[in-house]
């Protein structure tokens, strides 16, 4: 564990807490893409299958349970909670995320560290996470104005993977047999997808103005 990875995990956790706060405090999920939440739930379920077979550390196990539990709770809330689901931007959240699932699974069958079921699912979860924010970014561009908590949620979600890239660079130079090229390439793509959001988020912070994404 290094400071980049720990900060990355805490940033990821913070993004989930901000999202839970927004939904709980405002009883609204306006501006949040249900499709991105469903993709993230799938990412965690596919990646943390080894939850009960490979014990790595208490921290690792607890964080996996928190990520799986919170992502499923958010999807449940957005689908079932009568107050919350009324505020869901259904007509704006129309990105065909099933294509993302199919494409990532095909890619995982072709490109993986070992052609074994757990490794294919792990690669699938890495590729899917890289593109899972697309429906959310599309929804933000369509919905124009972004409320503060939603903006902070997306910013933290993008920042965590950027910190993981620093973690991979650090591990590459400090660990002899370290190779995470699948996660690293996917992580670079994932972070690059946030580039224009980061730019407009920085502008809104610098000008102390409302976050506006050009539609």
């Amino acid at each position: 564990m290094n400071v980049f990875r720990l900060t990355g995990d805490m940033t990821h956790l913070a993004s989930i807490l901000v999202l839970l706060l927004k939904i709980y405090a405002t009883k609204s999920c306006s501006g949040i893409s249900l499709k991105t939440q469903e993709l993230y739930a799938l990412v965690f379920l596919a990646r943390y299958l080894n939850l009960f077979t490979d014990f790595i550390s208490v921290y690792n196990t607890v964080m996996k349970l928190v990520f799986i539990g919170s992502s499923l709770a958010i999807v449940w809330c957005m689908r079932m909670h009568k107050m919350v689901k009324r505020s869901y931007d259904q007509e704006l959240d129309t990105f065909r995320h099933y294509f993302l699932i199919a494409g990532c699974f095909l890619l995982a069958l072709l490109v993986n560290e070992k052609f074994m079921f757990p490794e294919v699912l792990w690669a699938f979860s890495i590729y899917l996470e890289a593109v899972s924010t697309i429906p959310q970014l599309v929804l933000l561009q369509r919905s124009g104005n972004v409320d503060n908590l939603t903006g902070q949620y997306v910013f933290l979600l993008g920042a965590y993977r950027a910190l993981y890239i620093l973690n991979w660079i650090y591990r590459y130079f400090t660990e002899p047999h370290f190779s995470r090229w699948i996660a690293c390439v996917a992580g670079l793509v994932q972070t690059a997808l946030y580039a224009d959001f980061f730019y407009y988020y920085f502008l809104s912070w610098k000008n102390n103005a409302k976050l506006q994404l050009p539609s």
Binding site: D9, D54, M63, E175, H177, F178, S179, R180, A183
Partner: peptide, 10 residues
């Protein structure tokens, strides 16, 4: 498992 193969990250 071996360091490189085991997925020790979240």
């Amino acid at each position: 498992g071996s360091g490189s193969m085991e997925h020790d990250e979240l």
